[in-house]
Simulated scan of single mutants.
Amino acid sequence: MTTMIGYLRVSTEEQVTSGLGLAAQRDTIQRYADAHGWDVIWYLDEGLSAKSLARPQLQAALARLHIIPKRRDVAGIVVAKLDRLSRSVHDFSGILKLAAVRKWSVVAIDLGVDTSTPTGKLVANVMMSVAEWEREVIGERTSVAMQAAKRQGRHMGRVSILPQSTGDRLRSLRATHTLAETAVQLNAEGLRTATGEPWSANTVAKVQTRLLAA
């Protein structure tokens, strides 16, 4: 029988104390699991927001999923609503890419995202395409603004420093991961480049070179 991680999250201490929201999430996931013949292992983050992926139980779940398929004891992660997992399209896109690389499923019941099915994969791919389009549009607007400022003789930019913890995490991942896998994992963990942008294989390579030269 397939075993999935059921991830639950509430953001306020009042919800933690009362149990409001948790019961509804658990019930929704359990009914979906029963319909698909899944066993569920529960992970719960209490009193934490979804602004980033830096949540203890979510990170524990992702670490469990990151084990190579032959040794992995779970097939994916399921949430009742996408906002329980992430409020950021970019972060969610990173999780989907990581899942595709490591071959585990992501299920967000409210949106019909279930990458264990063809239709769910289609919905996930549309969401990732939208996220990529949004990044490109933002990048294009930034480039146009910087070019305009340059023509006017104004400097536009800032000095950005990569946090040491992020650099250390990059080094650790590169010991066992490809450039692309490292980029996906860094994005999935909510870590960003020095300029606040998502990681790519090219960015990982450039930053690794700088770190080695430092």
Rank of each mutant, 00 (worst) to 15 (best):
L162P: 10
R71Y: 14
A149T: 08
D73K: 12
L48Q: 14
S200G: 06
L62R: 11
A205Q: 15
R72A: 04
Q57V: 14
G190N: 02
E134P: 08
A23F: 15
S116V: 06
R84N: 02
P118M: 10
A145V: 05
I77K: 03
A23C: 08
A108E: 01
V184W: 02
V204M: 01
G196L: 00
R154P: 01
K70M: 06
A214K: 12
I41S: 09
Q152W: 11
R55C: 11
Y43K: 13
E13S: 15
S88L: 04
K51Q: 10
A33W: 04
T166M: 06
S88M: 08
G190T: 05
Q152M: 08
T142K: 05
P118W: 06
A24W: 13
Y43S: 05
A124I: 04
V184N: 04
A188H: 00
A35L: 05
L53V: 14
Q57R: 14
Q57C: 12
G157K: 11
T12S: 03
A214V: 12
S160H: 13
T117Q: 02
V10K: 02
R31V: 08
G6W: 06
E46R: 13
Y43T: 09
E132A: 15
L85T: 03
Y32P: 00
R72I: 05
L53S: 14
M128I: 15
V113E: 00
Q57N: 15
S49R: 07
Q15M: 06
D73Y: 09
E140F: 14
S172W: 10
H155I: 12
G167Q: 05
W38V: 12
Q59W: 13
Q208T: 14
T12W: 04
L98Y: 06
G47F: 11
L22P: 06
A35N: 04
A188L: 00
H177E: 04
T209I: 15
Q15P: 05
A99E: 04
G120T: 03
S105K: 09
I109V: 08
L111F: 03
A60T: 15
L82R: 09
A188Y: 01
D168M: 09
A63N: 11
S129Y: 15
I95M: 09
L191Q: 00
S105Y: 12
V159W: 11
T178F: 11
V184I: 04
R171L: 08
M127G: 03
G6T: 10
I109N: 07
Q164D: 10
G167T: 05
D168S: 08
Q185C: 00
L53I: 14
R87Y: 10
Q59F: 11
G21K: 12
L173W: 05
R102C: 07
Y7S: 02
A188K: 01
A213K: 13
S93E: 03
K206M: 14
L162A: 02
D91R: 07
T2V: 12
K206P: 13
L162Q: 03
